[in-house]
């Protein structure tokens, strides 16, 4: 087992609203929603809206393969040809009511851990959902505070509620800085358990 490598983490709320900029320096759009696959947690892409205060959402979207670089201040793309139809990225039928913000997080043994207030992403060769920032319920001892809970690298497909293994509660972090290590340790534990 390798030691957990340091992870580059960012919140989904830090990505939404970011400008999408081509390598030739033109502003294309702004990120509206982050779209991920519940099984595996991989980011599929982003829905877009036009820049500006009274902006409209757009009929095109940015798939992850079209992203050249994603940083603190902008999402970079080669040019506008990488955009695809929004319906192709997230079919309307699937994306309706599929926002996980404000969803409840339950452990697999049935404890309610709280509501999702943000989603933690890990940026590497791919961008993956690795945890939830939740407003903790009484079940966690830090009730009312915002804490981070890690997700396994293979998340079971879930419907209404977000189910996490009960062991995740042992790897709760109170700050994002320490959370990368917690995700690594949690996943290592799950793999040991499985083998």
């Amino acid at each position: 087992m390798t030691t957990p490598t340091p992870m580059l983490l960012l919140r989904a709320s830090e990505v939404t609203g970011r400008p999408v900029v081509t390598l030739s320096g033109e502003l294309v759009a702004e990120i509206k929603d982050v779209v991920f696959e519940r099984s595996g947690g991989r980011i599929a892409g982003f829905t877009l809206r036009n820049p500006g205060l009274f902006s409209r959402s757009r009929k095109d979207s940015l798939p992850w393969v079209g992203v050249h670089g994603i940083g603190r201040d902008a999402v970079m793309v080669a040019d506008e040809t990488v955009l695809i139809a929004a319906n192709e990225l997230a079919p309307r039928k699937q994306s309706r009511d599929a926002d996980v913000l404000q969803d409840r997080v339950l452990t697999d043994n049935g404890r309610d851990l709280g509501r999702v207030v943000d989603v933690v992403l890990h940026s590497g060769t791919s961008l993956d959902v690795v945890g939830y920032e939740i407003e903790a319920s009484e079940a966690l001892g830090t009730a009312g505070r915002h804490v981070f809970i890690p997700l396994p690298d293979t998340v079971a497909v879930s419907g209404e509620n977000l189910i996490v293994p009960a062991a995740a509660t042992e790897f709760v972090s109170e700050d994002l800085a320490g959370f990368g290590a917690a995700v690594g340790a949690f996943r290592a534990r799950l793999r040991e358990g499985a083998s």
């Binding site: 900029v21 081509t22 390598l23 030739s24 320096g25 033109e26 502003l27 970079m76």
Partner: peptide, 10 residues
């Protein structure tokens, strides 16, 4: 310098 557009120098 890779690009220069209306929004930024890349």
């Amino acid at each position: 310098m890779i690009g220069l557009g209306g929004y930024a120098v890349v």
